[in-house]
Every structure is written in structure tokens, then in C-alpha cells.
Design a protein around this nucleic acid. Structure first.
Lengths: 255, 255
DNA sequence: AGACGGCGTTCGGCATCGTCGAACGCCCCG
DNA sequence: CGGGGCGTTCGACGATGCCGAACGCCGTCT
């Protein structure tokens, strides 16, 4: 649908995962004539969505991309509403807090508060993680309708560490448990040594729209069993956020 | 050039500055038939560059936008090389550090290290500031070739605060002074109470490719004249970064 | 309760617009 | 000095995306 737009998007995604590429290489990867790729690049360049590397005429993503990515965040309702809650959760439990949404088979981090201890941490906003390898993803998956859930379970569940759960049956049972407990856990399933405790955020209609959770060293979060205070804090924050999402919508409707 | 790509980009930019819009409104703003806009939106939606609001069928930017914005940062050479320098500058002077590049008539912040004092700060990465209202912008403008500089000086120099310098002649003289001193200053020209000290980053060819600077409360940065330690720290950091940018390119060439 | 207006959406025909292969000029390398 | 790789230009063909008009849905006004 709209060939040229589709192809332009393919080029952007290709450039996004490759630092810089030339016209010829892009043409080969996408199976397009050089002239076609060139035309598309020229158009994207005029929009600053793409820019030319100083030398060698190669292309990379352009600054407009960053501005639009930021605009996405600014317009994101869940993110906007979670800013204060995430901040207060982080200072309450003294751990990093992440907020994510489900995007296909991955969780996209839309907000991230550093652990308040002055240590050097990298910002994860914009990162995307396989849903089955983080507590945020499991928290959302647990409340999806059956059909969508089995879609997620059916396909490639990549192994990221020795502890990643890749068996659909095991994951399925885990999701049931998550739904019962109201929190999802993750024990070094994405990064060795790192764990996460997360809970689901719902909108006014009871549909999961995201998740919020605490991430940190496994010994502090899951020492012997998940820390009860952390679980309680995460659950309460998620519930407050859900209420706010619902209240927002309802008051908007009342207008 | 490539009408549909251009129009798609216009839609994205329009959505970026409006939270959410409907087909009709977009059509009006861009002077396009509804059906045309709809087709473009459908294509963009398939790429996740745009998503539909749950109710009311309005559209907003999609999650792929955030991923691409992040990919831009990951691929950004100046940003990558500035990470460590910015961190060490921030802890040395105990103030926030910003790194920016010139994008048209604005400075795009590509990296931002918080002031290390646990205060609540908002991340400015992705923000774009009129070049004449920040030290980063003036640091770059001062070293542009004459033609490009006068382009920047010629047009709308918006007033953001009472202290914003909007007179081209005054700015022109200030830029000469920046070039002589090797640092640019900004005194509450963007935000009342906030000042900045910045220096230019050059590539191997001596072309300004960005700037790095310290931002903070005016009394700490410019108390009575710019703090000499800060100026020295900023200058040294910018020079180190420049050397690294140059070295990177030269070694790449030597291959 | 009914009609209206506004919305997002579908349809189909026309001509525009993007696509492609081939050829060009440039640079680097042998 | 010749070759091969690159990004770029050209021109002609025809697929493709554009548009105006019509549809169906919802909320509102009377």
C-alpha cells in the first residue's frame, strides 16, 4: 500500500540498524534498482529524515528522526501520566523504574527513571525487548485476550540468557500465575544478574495498555522470593496509574 | 520530489506537533483530498510510524518513530564519542552538560548529562533550540563560513526572554568574539535564570560538527564574569572531543 | 425521534508520478 | 593508465497513487 512510502520506510529501518549504507547496498538488500533507492533517499534527505555522511556519499538517519521520536514520547498518554508515578516509585524503592508498551512481539520502553544512587546508568528509553524476556512484557501478555496471547506464545521465543523461558507451555502457565498474582517477575531472563518486578496498567475499558516495573540486581529484587515491599509498591503504582488512565478518559468523555 | 514520500513526511511532522489529528483536519492543513491523506496514513500505520487513537479514529505518531529516533542517536558519531567526555565534564564541574548539533536554524540536543545532585531534571535529548538563544548554537555559528553565517543572521531571530539577542549586528559581533575566545556564552537568553558556556567541536577537516557545553543557574556559571574553571573545563573537553573526531576519521581513511 | 452534519472510509477512472535499465562521471586501486 | 566500484542522471514506459464522489456510522441539534 503506497509503494513508495512502504519502500521509504524499509530504507529508514534498514538505515536504523546499520549506521550508514550506500545506494548500491540498500538496493541489493531491498531488491530495488539503484535509481529507485536514490530517488527515495533524495526525498528523505530533503525532509532531514536521512542525511549523507560527509565523505563516501553514504547515508544515515537524519535529525528529523530524533525530533519525531521525541514527539512520539511527548504525545504518549501513558508516558505523560507515568512520569510522576515512576519518579515516586523509584525514590520509594531506590531502584530503577521502567515503563513499557507492547509493540508487536516486543516491549518498547517509553520511560525510564534511573536508580537514585548516582551510579552511571544508560537510558533505556527507546529500547525494545522481546516480550517474554522481561517482566513488563509478561505483565501485559497475561491480560491479553486468549487469541492474542497464543499468537505471542506461538512464534520464535529467543533465548537471551541461560534462564530465558522459551517453552510456550511453561510461559503459558507462568502468565496464568501472573494474572492471579497481579505481578510479573523476571529472573535474569534478559541480562544475567538483572531482575524485574512489574505490574500491568489498564485503561478505562480494562484493556492492558502498558506496564510499569522495578528493575535491578537479582539479589536485591528476588533475594529469597520476591521482596514483598517491592511487589506491593509496584502493584500500588500500577493501580494508581490505571486509575488515572481511566479517569482521564472518562473525564474526556464527559466533555 | 517523490510526492507521496514528501506528503507522508508532512503528515508525520504535523502529527508530531499536535498530539493527535483526524483525516479531515490533516487534509485541510496540508491542502490534500481526504482520500489521499487516508491512503498515506494507512501506509504509515502499516509501518507503525503512525497509530490510531483507541477511540475517535484519530491518528498519532507510532512506536516505530521512537525506535528510529533512538537508532539515529545510536548511529550518531559525535554523540557516541561524547558520552564519556560529557560524563566526566559533568562530574568535574558538577553541572549539567549538553551536546548539540546545528540543524537548520536550530540546535538539536543529542546528548544530555544531568547535574549530579539528585535533583529532578528533565531530559533534553531531542529538544531543539533556536541557535541564537543558546551557547551551543553560537559556538557553532562562530566558525561557519561567512555565507552560512549571514544566512543564520539574516532571518527571524525569535525573542525567547528579555535577554535574547535578536539584533543581527550585535550577534555578528558576538560571534567574532566567540571565535576569538574559543567559548560561547549565553546569559538567560532562552530561559530566565539559566545560563550556558559552550565550545565548538570540529572534525578532522576543521569544520564545526557540534558543540558541548555546561548549562545551569546563571549565578553559578556567570556570577561575576564567566567562571574561569568552567570555561577552561569546557574548552579542554571540546578540544579533546575534536581530536577524537579527527583521529577517528583519519584512522578510518588510513584503512 | 428524526434529520442533519461531520467524521473516517471505500470506490473507480484518469493521468500523473515513480520506477527501471542503461549510460555517465567520479574516485580509488591495481 | 586502465579497470571496477561507487553515486548520480536520463528518458520512456505503464503501473500506481491521486482525486471527487458516494457510503455508512456516530453524535447532536431541534
Amino acid at each position: 500500500m503506497i509503494q513508495s512510502v512502504h519502500r521509504a520506510a524499509l530504507i529508514l529501518k534498514e538505515l536504523g540498524s546499520s549506521r550508514r549504507l550506500g545506494v548500491t547496498e540498500l538496493g541489493e538488500r531491498l531488491g530495488l534498482a539503484k535509481a529507485t533507492v536514490f530517488g527515495l533517499l533524495r526525498a528523505l534527505e530533503a525532509e532531514q529524515l536521512v542525511e549523507r555522511d560527509d565523505e563516501a556519499g553514504k547515508y544515515r538517519l537524519g535529525p528529523a528522526m530524533l525530533q519525531l521520536g521525541n514527539a512520539f514520547l511527548d504525545n504518549h498518554e501513558l508516558r505523560a501520566r507515568s512520569l510522576l508515578w515512576a519518579e515516586s516509585l523509584a525514590s520509594r524503592v531506590e531502584e530503577a523504574v521502567r515503563v513499557g508498551v507492547l509493540n508487536g512481539r516486543r516491549v518498547l520502553i517509553v520511560h525510564h527513571v534511573f536508580r537514585p544512587d548516582n551510579s552511571l546508568q544508560i537510558l533505556e528509553v527507546g529500547a525494545s525487548i522481546p516480550w517474554h524476556a522481561c517482566a513488563l512484557g509478561k505483565a501485559m501478555a497475561a491480560y491479553l485476550e486468549a487469541e492474542r496471547r497464543s499468537e505471542l506464545l506461538d512464534e520464535d521465543l529467543a533465548r537471551l540468557t541461560g534462564k530465558t523461558v522459551c517453552d510456550p507451555a511453561v510461559l503459558d502457565r507462568e502468565l496464568d500465575q501472573v494474572a492471579r498474582r497481579g505481578v510479573a517477575l523476571e529472573d535474569q531472563e534478559a541480562i544475567v544478574g538483572e531482575a524485574e518486578i512489574a505490574a500491568t496498567v489498564f485503561n478505562y475499558a480494562g484493556v492492558p495498555v502498558g506496564a510499569i516495573g522495578v528493575a535491578g540486581p537479582v539479589e536485591r529484587l528476588l533475594g529469597d522470593g520476591p521482596s514483598p515491599q517491592l511487589v506491593a509498591a509496584v502493584r500500588e503504582t500500577a493501580r494508581s496509574l490505571s486509575r488515572e488512565m481511566g479517569a482521564g478518559r472518562l473525564s474526556a468523555r464527559a466533555r
